[in-house]
Simulated scan of single mutants.
Amino acid sequence: MERREDPCSSNYFVESPSTVFHDPESEFQSPTRSDSALLVLSCVNNEFPRHSDFLRNPENKCLYEDDEKMLVPPLQSSNSGWWIVLQIGWRFLFSFGVALLVFYIATQPPHPNISFRIGRFNQFMLEEGVDSHGAPTKFLTCNCSTKLIVDNKSNVFGLHIHPPSIKFFFGPLNFAKALGPKLYALSHESTTFQLYIGTKNRAMYGAGREMDDMLQSRAGLPLILRMSIISDFRVVWNIINPKYHHKVECLLFLAYNDMHIEVMVIREKCRLVS
């Protein structure tokens, strides 16, 4: 039978150099000796780049073929410029957060103390009149000054006070309200702020006559003042910004003076609700 040889593969037997040197007569011996090495040359498929392609594309990797397995070109590293930037960014943010936490713990401002006092009623009048529908009623005009005292115990940060809300009540009736300005208390100081609340020609109807009768009595006219305050320390902009909510409630009694001309505060009691 005729033996066909693979055109893509040829077997060559190479003598070991040590053997050739010591035994010159072995030059024409059979290549089946154990000291000969088998070299396998394998042709490359057309799908792989040829030698000329390797010369044109220096980025191509050489392919090595062993007897049973082929080595694949190594994968490229997954690290890139964006990955390095991301790692640096995360480390910077972590270090910055730790530094802010340490700074806040070292300089943590204490809770501010808030107190409130009624100043005086510059005006409190109940006058007879008729409303837009022609109904007779009492009209109230009043103007009251108050004092907000803020004790900021922080040695580093000033206290920012949002516009305080002030309301006057006679029983459940809210007859006057005001919104104060933004305030700022310096660090390590006790600051007093003057605030005002009032109303003008407010129709009181049945409540107006009752209020007038109480002003004439010895017990006086009971009124309730409620104030709501929000304050904060801006330690690091809005990142670390502790806020405090305060509610003040005052009970006061009004009565005419001895000359029955001017209304004055005869008793007052203020307390911090929250």
Rank of each mutant, 00 (worst) to 15 (best):
W90D: 03
G97D: 13
F103C: 03
P58Y: 00
F168D: 13
S77C: 10
P222W: 10
L183Q: 06
V14F: 13
F103L: 13
D23H: 13
N143M: 08
P110K: 14
Y64S: 04
I197N: 04
C250M: 14
K147R: 12
T107M: 09
K247D: 15
L86K: 08
L101D: 12
I261G: 00
Y256P: 07
Y205D: 03
L173T: 09
N241F: 02
F169D: 07
D232I: 10
W90M: 10
S145Y: 09
N46E: 12
V265T: 14
F169V: 05
C43W: 01
D67T: 08
G134P: 01
M204G: 04
N46H: 04
D151Y: 04
Y64Q: 00
N174V: 06
P163R: 10
A99N: 00
E25W: 07
T192R: 04
S52N: 11
D212M: 05
R271W: 11
F54K: 05
R33L: 13
R3A: 14
H51W: 04
K182V: 00
N174R: 07
S36L: 12
L223Y: 01
H246N: 15
F139W: 00
G158Q: 05
S34W: 03
G97L: 01
V265R: 00
F92S: 09
F13D: 09
F121A: 06
H160G: 01
A185L: 05
Y12N: 08
S274W: 00
V85K: 12
V265N: 07
M211Q: 11
I266F: 15
I114A: 07
H260K: 10
V263M: 03
I197C: 07
N45H: 15
Q29W: 06
D6L: 11
Y12P: 03
I239C: 06
R202W: 04
V248R: 00
I118D: 06
E128W: 07
L215T: 06
E127H: 09
F169L: 14
G220Y: 02
G198E: 01
H188L: 02
G81N: 14
L251V: 12
D66L: 13
L254G: 13
A185F: 09
M211L: 02
W83M: 01
R218H: 11
V150L: 01
V72S: 14
E210T: 08
